[in-house]
């Protein structure tokens, strides 16, 4: 193997071509996936962009151990095939220290590199971590129901269902819970996902760089309406956002207990809905309704 590796070094062109073509193939796959894609591979915010870059970084690093196998395996099969008896035959050859060090050492080094990177990225991209920005984040409370998403804007005292308004260029801090089974909140072009669970709160900080519309969804199977549980994220300017909130306050009905009871029933909505005001403490009440803390109302809207 060692002398063969030396002879291989003379033909360095071949591996280079293979690396380039493999990289090219990956890029092609990515670019095809990127076209008109709603995944993080076509990012619309800094978080999704980092996730994509990180994915590519891992692929490149891993290529160090994978590409040699793709080259050496066909070569071995060809050289040591029974039919021609061309390679040397040493049925008892079973060990070599240099190779041993190489095959343990190389993966170990790669894991150290990737592990170091992983540690920092985990902190850097922790969904709970507030995003650095000049402006304070927009706060939105999201409640997962069967099979819809309710978004409450506590500062604006309005609410929307199956669509969410955010401000382009301004961080948004989602506080999330579930009024039913466990679900998972995600806007793929903006970033990752986080579970929502009854009686518990999770958080997710996101940022849309430019105005636009992005699909959001629940990724955790929750029954018959699962496939339909999608929502639209509208990233708009601050002025448009304020105008929208004012319009909602002026023209839409309140999200009171009766409206909530209707929403809490399992259903697929034909169109997004909006509410001009929100019963006080609805979000914390939904959580407390499961925990027996200071319950405001149960998930189905009835008093305890």
């Amino acid at each position: 193997m060692i002398e063969n590796m030396v002879s291989m070094r003379r033909h360095q062109e071949l591996p280079k071509i293979l690396v380039q073509s493999t990289g090219g193939l990956l890029l092609l796959m990515f670019s095809v996936a990127t076209t008109a894609s709603n995944g993080f591979i076509n990012p619309a915010g800094p978080i999704a962009e980092e996730l994509r870059d990180h994915l590519i970084f891992i692929v490149m690093v891993m290529a160090v151990v994978i590409v040699p196998l793709f080259i050496a395996l066909p070569w071995t099969l060809w050289r040591y095939r029974l039919r021609t008896k061309s390679g040397s035959y040493q049925p008892n050859w079973e060990f070599s220290w240099p190779l041993e060090i190489l095959i343990w050492g190389l993966p170990a080094v790669i894991v150290v590199v990737l592990g170091w990177n992983l540690w920092h990225q985990s902190y850097e991209l922790d969904p709970y971590k507030p995003l650095a920005a000049a402006e304070a984040p927009l706060e939105i409370q999201a409640i997962a129901l069967d099979w819809k998403w309710v978004f409450i804007y506590p500062d604006q005292n309005v609410a929307s269902v199956n669509e969410v308004m955010i401000v382009a260029g301004r961080p948004v801090r989602f506080r999330l819970t579930s009024g039913t089974v466990m679900q998972s909140f995600m806007i793929p072009r903006l970033g990752g996902q986080i579970y929502t669970m009854a009686g518990m709160e999770t958080q997710m900080n996101l940022l849309a760089s430019e105005p636009g519309q992005f699909r959001g969804l629940n990724t955790q199977y929750n029954g018959m309406g699962f496939a339909n549980q999608k929502f639209i994220t509208h990233a708009v300017s601050q002025a448009d956002f304020d105008a929208w909130a004012t319009k909602m306050s002026d023209s839409k009905p309140p999200l009171n207990q009766a409206a909530w009871a209707l929403l809490a029933k399992p259903s697929v909505l034909a169109a997004p809905q909006s509410f001009g005001s929100v019963a006080e403490g609805l979000f914390t009440g939904v959580i407390a309704g499961f925990t027996g803390g200071h319950p405001h109302m149960k998930a189905d809207g009835t008093d305890l």
Partner: peptide
Amino acid sequence: NPPVDFAVHN
């Protein structure tokens, strides 16, 4: 990788 997993989980 946890952050990347956030994007491709499920």
